[in-house]
Every structure is written in C-alpha cells, then in structure tokens.
Design a binder for these strands. Sequence first.
RNA 1: CGGGGUGUAGCGUAGCCCGGUAUCGCGCUUGGUUUGGGACCAAGAGGUCGUAGGUUCGAAUCCUGCCACCCCGACCA
Length: 493
Amino acid sequence: MSKSLPKRSENYSEWYNELVKRADLAENSAVRGCMVIKPYGYSIWEKMQRALDDMFKETGHTNAYFPLFVPKSLFEAEEKNAEGFAKECAVVTHYRLKNDPEKAGKLMVDPEAKLEEELVVRPTSEAIIWSTYKNWIQSYRDLPLLINQWANVVRWEMRTRLFLRTAEFLWQEGHTAHASKEEAIAETEQMLEVYATFAEQFMAVPVVRGKKTANERFAGAEETYCIEAMMQDGRALQAGTSHFLGQNFAKAFDVKFMTKENKQDFVWGTSWGVSTRLMGALIMAHSDDEGLVLPPKLAPIQVVIVPIFKGEEQLAQISEAVKPIVTALKKQGISVKFDNSDKQSPGFKFAEYELKGVPVRLAIGARDLANGTVEIARRDTKVKATYPIDTVVETVSGLLEEIQANIYQRALDFRATHLFKVDTWEEFTKIIESEGLGFISAHWDGTSETEDKIKELTKATIRCIPLDSVEEEGKCVLTGKPSTRRVIFAKAY
RNA sequence: CGGGGUGUAGCGUAGCCCGGUAUCGCGCUUGGUUUGGGACCAAGAGGUCGUAGGUUCGAAUCCUGCCACCCCGACCA
C-alpha cells in the first residue's frame, strides 16, 4: 500500500474513495452497491445519531420501529410516492429456498413458496407508517403524533458511491401527524432548522436552507425543504430534507380525526430524514491530502497521546506522567487514547492519526519529561507547539473548541468564495464548466421547462430556493423572462 | 443499463501483445538493533492469477459467458 493518498486537487473522487477506505470508515461488501461500515466509521455515525436523537427528543419526538417490508398494496396507495420510488424498489416474492435437484449442494428459490402479495423492501416508510397511523388517530386529542425511527432503507441505485449513494443505507425518518396545516408546516420548518443546526454546530458544515422546486420535490409531498452543503470541489450535497406532506398520505390511507368542532378532517403530515450520506458530507467538507479532518464534536477519539520512548523503562516513566493527563481530560468529557504500542514508530502513529482525523495530538518524550512539557499538535492547521505539562488540559479543551470553530469558518469562507451572483447566461456557463465550480445565485423564471433546459445544457440543477432570499426584480438567466428572486444552481452529488 | 478501463498473496503491482506453472514493494511471522514525522538488518510464511467454460500436450497469457470495481454517460426524493 502506498503511503500517501491520491491528491485531492488531482482527482477528487479517487481521493474521496481512497480516504474512506484508508481511514477505515467503510468498504465495499460482497453485495452489489452495499457497503460495510467499519468500526471507526460507525463510531462517527453513532456520535451523529446521539446528537440528532437528543435534538429530536428535545423537540418532543419519540422513537418507534416499523417493519422493513411494505405490502405492495399499501405501497401503491399514495400514487405519486409509489411512482417516484417504483424504479428503485427491491421486492420480495418468495419465502423459501430448497435444494436444487439438478445441482448438488446448491439452493434454488422454491417456486411453490410464492407470496400471495409481494413485499416491497422499504425505500422510505410513509406507506407502512401511515397505514398504522390510521389505527392510532381518532381525535384531535391524539395529535400531534411525533415519531421518529432509526432504520435502514433500500433504494436500488444504478451507480453507488460509499456513503453518498448506496443501495442500502442507514437513516432516521421522522413521521408526524397534525391537526392543522399551520402546525404541520411549523413542524417541517422546525425540523429543517434542527438539521441545519446539527450540520453547522456539530459537523461544522455550513448549509443553505431552502425549498426544492417542484421538479426536485419528494414524491408525495406538497413542499420539500432541504439543506444544501458545498463540498470542497464546489459541488452541492443535499444533506437533509424535511417534507410538508399536506393531507396526501392521510387521504391515501384514510387517516381522519374528529376536530374540536366535532367535524371529521384528514390529518396533516410531515416527514423528514437524514442518512449516512451525512458521513460523506463530513468527509468531503473538511478533509485534506493527509486524510480526514474531523470536527471535535463528532470525533470518536478527540485526543491521542503518543509517547516517544527508548526502552521499556522510559515508556513506564512516560506512562506515569500521562496518567493524570488522561484522567483530567476524561473528567472534562474528552475522549482520549494513549497509544503506548511499541509496534509502530512515533512517525507512523502521527501519520496514522492524521489519516483518521484525530483533532488533537499530544507527544511526550524524555525531553518533555525533563522539561515538564508536552508537544501539542492540531489536525486542522497542522500547527505544533510545546506547552508546560500543567497547562495541557486547559490548552486541549480550548483547542478543541477552536478547531470546531475554525473548520466551520474555513468551510464558510470556502463557500463564500465559491458562491457567484450571476446575471448572464455566458457567465453562468463559464462558471459551471470551470474546474473549481460552486454555487450560482441567479434568477429563474419559475418554470420546470427552463429548469430542465438548464440541466440539459450544463448538468446544473436548482439546489434550492433559499429561505432567506430577498425579493428583487430580475430576469431569468436563460430565458430573460421576469423573476422575483434568485435561486441556487449547482452540480450535485 | 450504454461506452471505456481494470481484476495476479491482506494491500499496491510486473508478467499478457509473442502460451511452458508467477515479479517486486508494503504488510505479516521470528530474531536482533531502533523510536522527536510513515525505522533498519537477517531469515521465513503466504497464490485454485475475479469466476465458469472453451482451444491446446500445456493457459495468468488466446477465445466466450458471467461477476465485481473504477471513469464517462443515463438514472437518482
């Protein structure tokens, strides 16, 4: 195995792929399009789950679990939703295998064990959940119903990429039911804000909050809100979506409730989700040619301590000096690893923990013991400095906060320099065709035809209509027709 | 799913055109010396050459099917 990663600047996607594998995050599995998430990668996902789950609970949601399989008849009930996902569904048709009479030791699908009704492996759970909600909701007193589930879903994608698009992926999906349209919209917007806050404060990835155009809307939704993040190659990554479902699913599954006024009405729904794709966003937003750069809040190991020693005696002395540091850091809630293995040289360890994105590294050798010092290195800037040993805890906890803030700021600055306000088609194509592309803020006439045409010509799509976009007079960048606000165009993952 | 490429030890590869039982590096094992940015020396172990067929006295090498991965398209809430 060669020591260094492919250069990010030379081949971004090769760099990404190699990084995911080399940092022990995930690898391809024996199943087409499905990945194995390795322990180190999974522990990052667990930290994401923990933080998100806390935020869901804080906003009044509880977790539940619904089946992996959806009977076809339920799946097709909400027509638009079914149609939107039909092309990427895995379907279970049989429930038994048997020995193949013609090939010894081989199994075959037992043709006699055909299911009466096919089961769709959920690509999303609206159908199975709304069919259940019908039984749970009778009165306005049963509302709002605020439920989340952590689950796996399957979407049979033609081309997959580790974390960004896999046939099976892990996610959470919130499904809520409300007595009024206003309340459902407020819920949709609240959860979008939860996602945006998580992305910015935990992942250190700035996002644009916005609404999707009709073309990009979730199948079965009245309105799809999203957060869009910019990766280091200037492409956009949809990092989370929150849908206002109107009464579409309530009508499809006949979910009615009695209002305070003693009238029957259909309930209003929302659904919202983020997936292991966030791992892809996290990796692509911050990492460099040396490897991962993790935000301290999501790093499984926040501080690694590397002893530099000659012989066991020195290691024992260093270990003694390290002990109180480890204890003190842990007391602060900081996760620490003391790597006292003598299998690898310090240089090897330095490179290894950089590859894995450990935010802070301490190095202690005989020289430090004599001087009462520790070398502290930060992953984001690669700056090293020596500090008195009794200031380590304070320095480290300050540094973790600084790194969290710094990588967010760096990503924000990157986005700022790759966000272009464009008013002519010439400029538009020039930017979109250049290597280091980015987000284009431009006027659009509001029609699907124009959106499609632009996609056809440039491969750029409307990522969203930003929630904070200001109303202004303008002309569509392609057609010249009047427009009242700018939208964000970009090439997307 | 279409076009192109790749598949050889845990990883990365040479050999393939021109058929004769597989090269090198990393890693691994053992012993020793090392350790402030991916240590060094010595000795070893490790292979149905992606897979299934075919041609041939003989196939990593030639032919066919299949599978997987990568790149470019198409597809993608």
